[in-house]
Nucleic acid binder design. Structure first.
Lengths: 217, 217
DNA sequence: TTGCAGCTCGGGCAAATTTCCCAAGCCGGA
DNA sequence: TCCGGCTTGGGAAATTTGCCCGAGCTGCAA
């Protein structure tokens, strides 16, 4: 890892939208101490870029098409346990946050955060601290207090990922392709999710995902 | 409207994520001819900002929480028919694209597009042309729809009623009972609605109903 | 160490639904 | 009158659902 104090903080940006990456890059580099040394637009490339550039911090959006971003976190951390990963996404569900941290993320900030909060989170993570935006802290706090958690708490990581894609409009085959699963498995998850959540209709599932903040409409 | 040739193109950015807005701002302003004169983070503020700054182009993400971005498009266009609105979002469902254009958008580009495609789309829209990214053009082409009318305008009264109940979470049998129809008829309507709107999954149908204000979630 | 529990992944198979194509009655407009 | 549209449903093939099953894996606890 580089000497942060002397050279600033090197950042690997992982997001599937080119213009979004370019925007972040400009925002971060305007800070002076942050340098984007590489970009990746999918989870598969993320580790390669990480290895090639050894960045101080990986800033990564977990809602990418294809393999789950959580997968990417585990992937990187498994092979480089010292990696610092800051999850940066539009999602703000407690289950997702918890999943990200237990996958090995060092921080979690939402895109609703002020830019200053984001860059400060990057600096914190680079120092080895844990970081999260205020809204995330609030959500985790509420979550830990409520005895009956969100419906989503009943769901496993895979189930949540499949629910998100399904509610986003993806077909069963598309989800199977994205996640490299058999159609049958996705169908089974679909059924399991319905029984676990009590949804009797696909429409109810979509509404559930929307009210839980898993999907935006 | 400003003199585009002399002053460049003034842009109003509407997106609910502050850092995303700031990123776009920097990308756009690095172009020289594009100037972000205002930002808004929700549909409600968008029209106020539009009126206050009279931008050449509104660049707007329709996937905002709360009120529909489509509503914002209609809102602006109803009161300022000369407004040029470029939808810029991560969604690429044919129904959404159609809904956006029939709501009065001048262009539709996805966030998967190259930054150069986005800025070119802004310039096209500023000239009064229609613009869309390549992926959107492909999706629309495959969808091969009749370019007239709002998505809901294609639907008959019965179809809209069935869509509303379906999106509200009712099963096919429940709808049949409510409306005193055979299950078969409701199934046929369900299928017809999907083909007419271009929705490929039930989830897309629910999203469509929600974005059109047919259902609230 | 063993064992249990829970997640993940998929096969199987009957029942149900979806997907299309079709027909017929009704009604309003040219 | 005829055309076009909405509404209502049948039929048959294709697909999905509902539910049950087992197997591999991981973490955790005794």
């Amino acid at each position: 890892m580089n000497d942060v104090a002397a050279t600033g903080i090197s950042v690997l940006l992982v997001d599937d939208h080119p213009i979004v990456r370019q925007g972040y890059r400009r925002v971060l580099e305007s800070q002076g101490d942050l340098h984007v040394v590489a970009e990746a637009d999918n989870a598969a490339d993320a580790y390669g870029a990480f290895k090639a550039h050894d960045p101080d911090v990986v800033v990564l959006d977990i809602s990418m098409p294809g393999a789950s971003g959580l997968e990417a976190i585990r992937n990187i951390r498994a092979r480089s346990p010292r990696a610092r990963i800051l999850v940066f996404t539009m999602h703000n569900e407690a289950v997702l946050v918890k999943a990200a941290f237990s996958a090995g993320a060092s921080g979690f900030v939402t895109k609703s955060s002020e830019p200053s909060a984001v860059v400060n989170a990057i600096r914190s993570v680079a120092r080895g601290e844990r970081a999260m935006s205020d809204d995330i802290a609030h959500i985790l706090a509420e979550d830990s207090l409520s005895p009956t958690g969100s419906v989503l708490d009943q769901l496993g990581e895979r189930e949540i990922e499949i629910l998100r894609q399904f509610a986003g409009g993806a077909t069963t085959e598309e989800i199977a392709t994205h996640l490299n699963l058999s159609v049958k498995t996705v169908q089974n998850y679909h059924y399991l999710i319905k029984t676990k959540t009590g949804a009797r209709t696909d429409a109810q599932l979509v509404r559930l995902a929307a009210t839980c903040g898993l999907t935006k409409i």
